[in-house]
Amino acid sequence: MSEPVEKFLCVVNGKQQIMEVPDNTLLLDWIRTDLGLTGTKQSCEVQVCGVCTVLVDGVPVSGCTTLAYEARNSNVMTIEGIRGTAFYQRAEEIFMRHSAVQCGFCSPGFILTVFTLVNAGRKLTEHEIKQALHGNLCRCTGYKSIFEAAIEVINSEVGLGK
């Protein structure tokens, strides 16, 4: 391709990466295709389903509607970066216990959203948790098990609001 390509730095899951892609490249495509981090999924491509959720400087964004360029010089966190944390271990155990996973396509996105809620450090009511999770779609579970698992994870990390 003859498109002009600039180089940028970007820290992904704690590791410095050189971003060298056409400026119309989506963050999702850079993560999945160039970095080979396929835990972040692609589905609706219009910021509705949440399977492409990644954190840019701690803020959850949809990789499908974010340019890689917008994440230059920042810290990007994907499911691969969260996997090794103590938070993740507890969350996985709780999600498993509630059997809150079926096809698994939405699961990393839900984990990232719950991680963001926990990181905010604020006690959340069940109503607030439900509102926060409505940007993640799941077609398999009927949500009940995911909702119950998310409540338990958040309660165990920061407690529930009243």
Partner: peptide
């Protein structure tokens, strides 16, 4: 018995691969 899904951890952690991966 409610045995844990044998594919659960690999799916939740994003390790499970689908055709597009």
């Amino acid at each position: 018995v409610n045995h844990d899904r044998i594919d659960g951890p690999s799916k939740i952690s994003g390790k499970a691969q689908y055709v597009g991966d």
